[in-house]
Each structure stands twice: as structure tokens, then as C-alpha cells.
Write a protein that binds this DNA or RNA. Structure first.
Lengths: 144, 144
DNA sequence: GGCAGATAGTACTAAATCGTATAATCCGAA
DNA sequence: TTCGGATTATACGATTTAGTACTATCTGCC
């Protein structure tokens, strides 16, 4: 027979969690000067392109619940990193946009992320990144 | 010039976080009958092979701090899923081992994880999994 | 043998996160 | 137009997670 016991096999999910925690840890340590939590870093990183987003859109991008995001955004707003506006055409939706200080922080975050990815992934074969991307995409959209 | 603005590039780290949250969500929903939190599921999954581990070893495997793990293990111990013993030769270290009910839960968890990975990754090219594994390994061990 | 520094784990306290319930707004059908 | 259900975001309370300080134990060196 070909397959081993399920218990001794490598698991993509467990490796995923290890990698997420490890990288988040390193990133937070490098950005300690910004005095932001992991969720705040994540939110700003996703807003870094300057496009405004609603709370729902941002929640889907960062992977946190809307209820959690409310607290995170409260803190970022209090610090002057983001503003809460309304989206034209839908008065329910709240449009999150970066202030100039938020844009600055977001740019530093993206730079730190890019550096970290560079350090970690530079030695891998050419198509490894493409495969990583495809696999993460597939996992993110796994049918329940 | 070859490289685009850093802000418009795909980020492995952000994709990693999305994938982690999404898969964890689906997994927790499928295992709702076990009434366990994400950390507890993660801890049990890492213990599923039946080998005992110290708190430090388990912490490294699941990616949570020892202080967090103490609470998680408190809950698992209270429920009778694990026991805390001592490791022969080092009276500081605490050896975490599964009880039979813990072993049962861990097996169900591993099965659910294997199913989920199967659903998500089955359509990918052959070497995608190997590349995923290598990339996650590299990210986990990124030099700070 | 005995001391100094390092390591393992936990209590305590503070912070972040999530789930439930709620108000406002939108959309489609009659 | 107007009503009912769906969607958007938030407040509040409860749980989970993390940081700091501490005790117990080990390891190497004298």
C-alpha cells in the first residue's frame, strides 16, 4: 500500500499556522517602533495601496471578524492613522482611508514585509513562489 | 524597469494570514461538536502522533507563547484530554500526553484536517505541494 | 561540593479577540 | 410606495491570548 498512517504525514495546515505565527512574530519585532498590534499592522498593510475599503472588505482581506475590526479601527482612528467616511451610494458602509501618517506607517510596514519575504524566499526555485501563491489561494477558498 | 511599485505586488505574508484564518475558520466549524477553541484544536493536532511533548516543544510546534499554552493546557487538562507529567531526567520540564479521550479527539481533528487539505489541494500540480512545503519551511525559519 | 547564570513552567494582570444582540440602511417584490 | 428580509457596522459582555514577574531546576565552572 502507498499511503502511510495519517498521523505521521506532514500537514499543510499545521505548517501554515507555524509559518504565520513565526513570521508575524518577526515582523512585529521589527516594527516595534510603530507601537502597533499584529492586527493593526495587518490592517494597515492591506490598506497600503491607498484605495479605501469598507469594513467588510477589509475584514475579508485581513481575516478578522467585523466585530474585531471595529476595535482595531477604533485604535487606528484614535491615533490618526485612518479616517472613517461614508461610501457614496451606500450610507450603511463605512469607508476606511489612510491619513498621511497612516500612509507613512503602511509604507514602512510593506517595506518590512517585502524585506522579510526576500530574506525567507530568495533561495527557492523559480516556480516555488508561483506554486506557493496557487496553494495559498486554494486553501483560502477551500469549499466548506 | 522590471519591478513594479512595492505597494501593488502580491504579498506572501498577507496571503499566508488570509489562508490561515480561512482554513482555521472552516476547520473549527466542522469540529464544532468537539467544543474546542482554535488553539486547543491546534495543540491536540500536534500531539496526535501519541508522542509526549514538553510545553516548550509544543509551543514551538503550534506557534503560541508558553504563557498562552499554560491556559490552553489548563482547559484541556480540566476536560481530561491531556495529562501533565514530568519528564524523566528534568524535573523542570512538564510532559504533555494525550489521554484516551484526547487521543480520540486528536484523531478526529487530524482526519478533518486531512479532508480539508484534500479538498483544497487536490487539483494542484504535482510539485506544488513540495514547493508549498519548502516555502512554508523557509518562512518559518526566516532569520530575524 | 557550591555558586552563577540559564532554562522551564506558571500566576497574575492587562489587552486583544470574538459572539450575540441591535440600529440603520438597502433591495426586491407586491 | 411600502413592507420584509438581507446587509453593514457597532456596542456590550465573555472568552482567549499575551506580557511581566516569580519559583524551581539544571548546567557549567571554580
Amino acid at each position: 500500500m502507498k499511503s502511510e498512517s495519517v498521523l505521521s504525514e506532514w500537514s499543510a495546515l499545521l505548517a501554515l499556522q507555524r509559518a504565520t505565527h513565526a513570521t508575524l512574530q518577526v515582523l512585529a519585532a521589527e516594527l516595534v517602533d510603530l507601537d502597533l498590534t499584529a492586527s493593526e499592522i495587518n490592517a494597515l498593510a492591506n490598506l497600503a495601496d491607498g484605495r479605501g475599503r469598507t469594513v467588510s472588505e477589509l475584514g475579508a482581506a485581513v481575516g478578522t471578524r467585523p466585530t474585531t475590526l471595529t476595535s482595531v479601527l477604533d485604535r487606528l482612528e484614535r491615533r490618526g492613522h485612518i479616517t472613517r467616511g461614508t461610501r457614496p451610494g451606500d450610507r450603511r458602509a463605512v469607508l476606511i482611508e489612510l491619513t498621511s501618517s497612516g500612509q507613512l506607517a503602511a509604507t514602512m510596514i510593506r517595506q518590512a514585509i517585502a524585506d522579510l519575504e526576500h530574506r525567507a524566499l530568495d533561495g527557492l526555485p523559480d516556480d516555488a513562489i508561483a506554486h506557493l501563491r496557487a496553494a495559498l489561494q486554494a486553501l483560502t477558498e477551500v469549499p466548506s
